[in-house]
């Protein structure tokens, strides 16, 4: 699959999202206390159809960056330029309209799907929220079927079931179908595989890759597992203490790490790799 991606020269693609000088401190409002910032001036960009991996230790601020982009976390300072528009300068309502094509897949396949809704209602929720095809329930149902087929879940078998009847892997695919149904340009995937069993992780990544190839989706793939990014990500961002300390293809980063933090991370992984 790597071959296919390399043929498309991602350097030629237009920038989809430009993040610059992001800064965030938790806790004390206005950062009057001397709390260490979670995000400390992170800057990077994501091009159209590009899969960008964001790796780092726990507590490095990976999830916070993802949540800021998805609009569920406030930011203290910085700029988010999405499709040429400055998101942070917008009012909440305008921003929601402008970022309809940014969707998110969450880490926890159990918590992120409401237990009161059927799979059909869950997958259709972005349409309901965006008031798309409001008076055309048949069209909505058709879109749900299509989205489920895209993630290799048979609509007939799954549409009327509830999330708690599904396995973790199936639930995560429902989450992916839900993110996909509005035909997004960018999906923020926050550790989507970390709560899945080992044997299901590569399945989900394979599915995500197929989806992006068919429908030209860019991913921000957040993970603590560098090994997963090989063969999946076009480019890696290494985050340490709220700053991007290194960037490059997964091959460059793993074979020739520059920053001391990346070096330590890779040494640790190599150690687990020996047997």
């Amino acid at each position: 699959m790597g071959v296919h991606k390399q043929e498309r020269d991602t350097m030629q693609q237009k920038v989809l999202l430009q993040v610059s000088g992001l800064y965030k401190t938790y806790g004390s409002k206005g950062a009057s206390r001397q709390a260490a910032p979670v995000i400390d001036g992170a800057s990077f960009s994501i091009r159209q159809t590009e899969t960008v991996g964001l790796v780092g230790a726990s507590g490095a601020g990976k999830s916070t960056i993802g949540r800021i982009i998805a609009g569920i976390e406030q930011v203290d300072k910085g700029k988010l330029i999405y499709q040429g528009q400055d998101l942070l300068a917008m009012k909440a309502k305008e921003r929601r309209a402008a970022t309809r094509s940014i969707q998110m897949v969450f880490q926890d396949p159990y918590e992120s799907l409401s237990s009161r809704m059927t799979i059909e209602q869950l997958v259709a929720e972005p349409l309901v929220i965006a008031r798309l095809h409001k008076n055309d329930p048949a069209k909505r149902t058709e879109l749900v079927r299509e989205a489920l087929r895209e993630v290799a879940l048979s609509p007939e078998r799954y549409m009327h079931r509830y999330a708690h009847e599904l396995s973790g892997g199936e639930r995560q695919r429902v989450g992916l179908a839900r993110a996909f149904i509005t035909r997004p340009q960018l999906i923020v995937a926050d550790e989507p595989t970390s709560m899945l069993d080992t044997s299901l992780r590569l399945d989900l990544l394979g599915l995500m890759r197929e989806l992006s190839q068919r429908h030209e989706i860019a991913y921000l793939f957040i993970t603590h597992d560098l090994a997963l990014t090989r063969g999946f990500c076009d480019r890696l961002l290494v985050l340490n203490q709220g700053q991007i300390v290194e960037t490059g293809t997964p091959e460059e980063v793993t074979e020739n790490p520059q920053h001391p933090f990346t070096l330590r991370l890779i040494e640790a992984l190599r150690e687990l790799d020996q047997f």
Binding site: R67, A70, G71, I72, K93, R96, A97, T99, R100, Q103, M104, F106, D108, Y110, E111, S112, L113, S114, E125, P126, I129, A130, G175, R178, T182, V188
Partner: peptide, 16 residues
């Protein structure tokens, strides 16, 4: 909770 965060990430308003 996760489901509420998910709805917010889809651009849902407070009333919804």
């Amino acid at each position: 909770r996760g489901a509420v965060l998910a709805a917010r990430s889809m651009g849902a308003g407070h009333f919804y």
